[in-house]
Structures are given as C-alpha cells and as structure tokens.
Design a protein around this nucleic acid. Structure first.
Lengths: 213, 213
DNA sequence: GGGTGTGAAGCCGTTCACAGCA
DNA sequence: TGCTGTGAACGGCTTCACACCC
C-alpha cells in the first residue's frame, strides 16, 4: 500500500526523540529550528538530523530552518497510527510500575490500557491509573481492549510463558525487559533490552578508558 | 599496555549475556558446550558466537565444543576488573528500586555501593540492602566508596545537574535511563537508554508488520 | 555566508563460504 | 562427518564533501 518502505530502526528511535524536544520547543514559543539546533539538543551531528528528516519529508520547500509544528506533524504521520495503539504491561514489579508512571498522561497515540500480575494483592488495584488484571485473563483482556503491544517485565522464569501467551493472543509487538531472551514469529516485532548486560558494557568501557590514559 | 584493543560494543554485550547462561549450564552440570548451543539459547547464529569468542580467545586448542568453565573465566578476564567496580544508583524511584533489586546478590564483580535521592524519607533507608544517601553528599560518598559508575534514574529536570556532579566527582562510566540526554567528557563512557523511544519504535514496526500483510 | 539535500565513501557488525582439525 | 576459526562479501548506518538556494 504505502510506498514508504520501513524506515531504519535508528531513524525511528531518533524521530521519536526529536519529536519530544520539538514539542518542548513549541511550548516555549520557538516556531522554527535549524538542523544543527536539533543536533545539539541530542548530541549528534546536523547531517544525521537532516538525513533522518530527509527520509520522511516528501515536500521540499527550501527555507531556513524547519517549521517546528510541521515537523512534529510529519513525524506523527510516520510513527503514529491514525487510531493509536494500545499497550499492556506484563508484570507489576518495580520496573513495571516505573513504566506505568513514565507513560502516565503522555499525549502520544500510545496508551497503556492494562497491566497484569499474578499477585492477588495487585490484581484489581490501579497503578498510575491503569487497572491490574490477573495473568490468567491475559487473552480475554488483550482481545477486549484491542491491545497490540506488550511490555514484559516479569521475572526471568516466567518470561517465556508470558511471551508465548502474548503471541497467542495476537500481539503485534513485544518489548522485553526481562533478562531471559524470547523468540517470536516473524510477524511480531521484538525488541529486547537487558539491563545487566548494558551495565556490564558500561563497566567494560569505563575500565578501558581508564586503562588507556 | 594491553594489546587487546577495545572490543566492539555489541560483542561486549553478548559476552556478558553468554556468561550468564554459561553459569547456568555449569550449575546444571554441563561442562562442554557447542557454539550452536550457545547460539540457540540466545537466538543468534553460531557464527556470531564463534566470532565473539574468537575476539577474546588467544588460545587455539581445537576440541569439540567449549569448556564451559574456561569460557566463563575467559569472559571474566576480559570484561571484569581484578578488583571489581563500584556503582551508584542516582534516584530511588520505581526504576531505581527496580535496578537495585535486579542486581541484588549477583555474583559479578560489579557492586552497587550506594543510592542517592533528595527525598528525606528515603535518605538513610536501605533499598535491597543498599543505603540511600542525600544527593548533597554525592561527591563525598562517591570518593569514599570508590564508585566509578553511575546509573541515572532521576526525573528529566534533574538529570543534567546530576550528570554534571557525577562527572565532577570523577565517575568513569554513566548509564543514563532518563529521557533527558546528557553530555560527558571524552574520558567518561556514556550509554543512554530512552524507554519512550524504544516503545515508539516497537509501535512503529508492529504497525508496519501489520500493514505489510 | 549560513543554511539544506544528497551522492559517495567509510565504518561497523553480521553472514557466507570454506579451510582445517578430530 | 561435524565441529571450529576466519578471509571475504554484504548490509545498515554515519560521515564526508559538495551542489544548491536564500
């Protein structure tokens, strides 16, 4: 359908970040912005910014700087869906609650519609305004609330099962924060983030910087 | 000094992950392992695994499969330091507590020695066994406890200041989970992770998978 | 001059294809 | 035959260098 073939992953990430700071600019009354200004905000190069914008900007009217409002809309057209997408958080531990708090009251097209846990003390309570359901009702709620994205924050030993259930319920994207890796079919997008290995990576390079001086 | 020039970032991340599952193997009494077995555990290719190991394995005695114990030690030699490294968590919100819980009782060479907050109700309390100090004492504690790595989980508006203080206290590595980007001198290793943009990325690709069917 | 858009080059990381060993 | 180690090809992303416009 759409001619726009899928953007590079990195570009999508950056566009999302640009948009946030562009919205801040707008709220400060700044209506035009240069690529090098955006670049400075995010500590990248202006070429990088222009490349990214190039990939989404069909219109080519060359003026000085970008119209902030227009750019925000342009990014929205690409990364949002018309109707928005619904999200579930799996596991209401500290990390799950952090995420719930994080997204509370954001004005994007992404809405956290439900969270799940196995702890009866958490079920039926609300966390950052989001109701908690029992894992047993996963399939039902996902379908009822038309949830298409799941964020996994359950303990390692539960991860594989939860992932399996998500996929079976027809989820389209999974963000896995558990240290246990999962696999999903090709028609589900998977992003995994391992907090331990990130930290060990930082430790490794911090050490090496020290050594090389 | 060391001839081993800095490893690729991705390799370091994976080695850290390999080690975790290797230790699990060992505890199950599995003493030898093939590259394709490691690969399967992490859903990557066996070539990738062998490449990674190639970069750290000076010795070349070709047998069938790797000695698990040896491999663990080998990875440790590369990514750990002799004496270990000390870590501080900045901000004891949900995310900070998640991280503190996460690393509690891990047997790596990385130890969380302190956490910091501005909330007087948190200061002096212990979280997952780690004492919480007031942000005002950052410099003092960092030096006293020889902390070389900081994990930032404070709210966006505090991020820049906290980062500045960390750098001034002589920190060597920073892992920034705040949505506000920071900049650090060249002699400090910086890794940033933005939860919002990860989620928006997943949403974008989840959407696109759907469309392209 | 100070901006933007972009072909071409470069870099980094992954995969292919295959040699060599048990 | 089945594994490991590795040169070479490949692909994705970033940077260079420069044309073009106000």
């Amino acid at each position: 359908m759409t001619t726009k073939k899928s953007l590079p992953e990195k570009t999508v990430e950056r566009l999302s970040i640009y948009r946030r700071s562009l919205m801040e600019c707008l709220s400060k009354g700044k209506n035009y912005i240069y690529s090098h200004e955006i670049a400075k905000l995010h500590h990248i190069t202006s070429v990088q910014v222009r490349r990214d914008i190039m990939l989404i900007a069909y219109t080519r009217k060359i003026t000085k700087g970008y119209n902030v409002k227009e750019l925000i809309d342009l990014i929205g057209n690409i990364i949002d869906t018309e109707s928005g997408q619904n999200i579930a958080v799996l596991g209401v531990g500290n990390l799950g609650r952090a995420l719930l708090g994080y997204f509370k009251g954001r004005r994007t097209k992404l809405t956290i519609m439900a969270c799940f846990d196995v702890n009866p003390n958490k079920v039926k309570r609300h966390f950052s305004g989001v109701e908690c359901y029992h894992m047993d009702n996963l399939d039902e709620i996902i379908k009822k609330k038309k949830i298409s994205i799941g964020i996994i924050t359950v303990p390692p030993e539960k991860t594989v099962e939860v992932a399996k259930n998500l996929v079976e319920s027809g989820i389209k994207g999974v963000l896995n924060y558990s240290s246990t890796k999962i696999s999903v079919p090709d028609n589900v997008f998977l992003e995994e983030f391992d907090m331990t290995s990130s930290l060990e990576k930082v430790a490794y390079f911090a050490k090496n910087i020290e050594e090389s001086t």
